[in-house]
């Protein structure tokens, strides 16, 4: 009796095993093109910025590329490493994506522990052979916005535009990334109109809207009528100043028109959705490569919104953007190189 019961149990276990195998195989048949896991930044979904944009890209990849995706919304920084590890441990995902620069520490550790797992990180660099780091050609975005502002400042019949040919940009900090934006902006404005003067200043902080507003008011007083904010949260002050004095501001990273619908001329966009889509596409087509991937206009990693931009200017901007995409125009990324570049590209 005891023996029978025991062997019955053995059979039961064996049957269960077969069942599990069968289930495993049957799900294997309907395997998706790729499995992708995403660890979002702690802001979580619903931030109307980085995370939401990344999520949109993931959903588009699901629909158009036939991938299967899984994601995690960590509530604390301490969770990043665990979540990345848990995804990697399953050895089931073709790509694991980290959204946002504050995951760099965690990804550095986890990518070293799982050298055969492919990772991607957006907006910062993790130097490891199995990590693809996606960053942006900031100067190309600056160029497009410079072209728009340079053409716009000579318009007449718009109360927000003054007769002076002066435009401005307020940067967050005097660092290479922001200066690449400013260099592109200057190059763009002076390329379409050599007489335009470009003012620039730095807030020195990413979260000081009051100072951002002060600096913007100073630029308006010096004759500027369009000021771009490349200053994170400090840039909210730039938009506020434009609204209060009825000038134009240009937003950054995401569509900020809702802040001042009559005064935000356009926005310099970072398309996280396109970036994540590109990363997934590269894995599927076998083109995944560790190292730094710089995305610009051509890769649709950067761009602008048409918002309040008149149609004739949109046409001109798009034509010039095409030249950047084709490689005909290589935009300088240092402010001191702008003069020489303009001389070389005189029309």
């Amino acid at each position: 009796m005891a023996v029978f019961r025991k062997s019955g149990m053995v059979w039961g276990v064996a049957l269960l095993f077969v069942l599990v195998l069968a289930v495993g195989v049957s799900t294997g048949v309907a395997a998706p093109k790729a499995r992708v896991a995403v660890v979002f930044a702690t802001g979580g979904l619903g931030d109307k910025s980085f995370n939401d944009s990344g999520f949109a890209g993931l959903k588009r990849a699901e629909k158009e590329l036939g991938i299967e995706s899984q994601y995690a919304e960590p509530q604390q920084i301490a969770e990043y490493e665990t979540l990345l590890t848990q995804f990697a441990q399953t050895r089931k995902y073709d790509l694991i994506v980290s959204i946002g620069f504050d995951q760099a520490d965690a990804l550095k550790v986890v990518s070293a522990k799982f050298p055969n797992q492919k990772f991607a990180i957006i907006d910062t660099v993790v130097d490891a052979p199995n990590v693809a780091s996606y960053v942006y050609k900031e100067q190309e975005r600056g160029f497009v916005l410079g072209v728009i502002a340079g053409l716009m400042t000579t318009k007449t019949g718009d109360p927000r535009i003054n007769p002076e040919k002066v435009i401005g940009v307020v940067g967050g900090m005097d660092i290479p990334l922001i200066n690449a934006n400013i260099a592109g902006y200057m190059a763009g404005a002076k390329y379409v109109n050599p007489d335009v003067e470009v003012l620039y200043s730095y807030v020195g902080a990413w979260a000081d809207p009051a100072k951002g507003k002060e600096l913007t008011l100073v630029q308006f007083n010096q004759g500027a009528d369009i000021v771009w904010q490349a200053a994170g949260r400090s840039g909210l002050g730039v938009i506020k100043a434009a609204e209060e004095t009825n000038h134009y501001a240009i937003g950054a990273d995401s569509d900020q028109c809702y802040l001042a619908p009559k005064n935000v001329l356009t926005n310099g966009m970072k398309f996280v959705d396109n970036t994540i889509y590109t990363a997934i596409e590269q894995v599927i087509s076998g083109k995944f490569k560790g190292g730094i991937h710089v995305l610009g206009l051509a890769e649709k990693g950067l761009g602008y919104t048409t918002s309040l931009v008149p149609a004739d200017i949109v046409a001109k901007v798009d034509a010039l953007a095409q030249k950047v995409i084709s490689g005909e125009l290589a935009i300088p990324d240092k402010i001191q190189d702008v003069e020489a570049w303009l001389k070389a590209h005189k029309k």
Binding site: Q70, A72, E73, Q75, E79, L83
Partner: peptide
């Protein structure tokens, strides 16, 4: 917390 995390991760149930 740690269990809730993997509940969200692998069973897709909100943590």
């Amino acid at each position: 917390q740690s269990g809730g995390m993997s509940m969200q991760l692998f069973a897709r149930i909100p943590a």
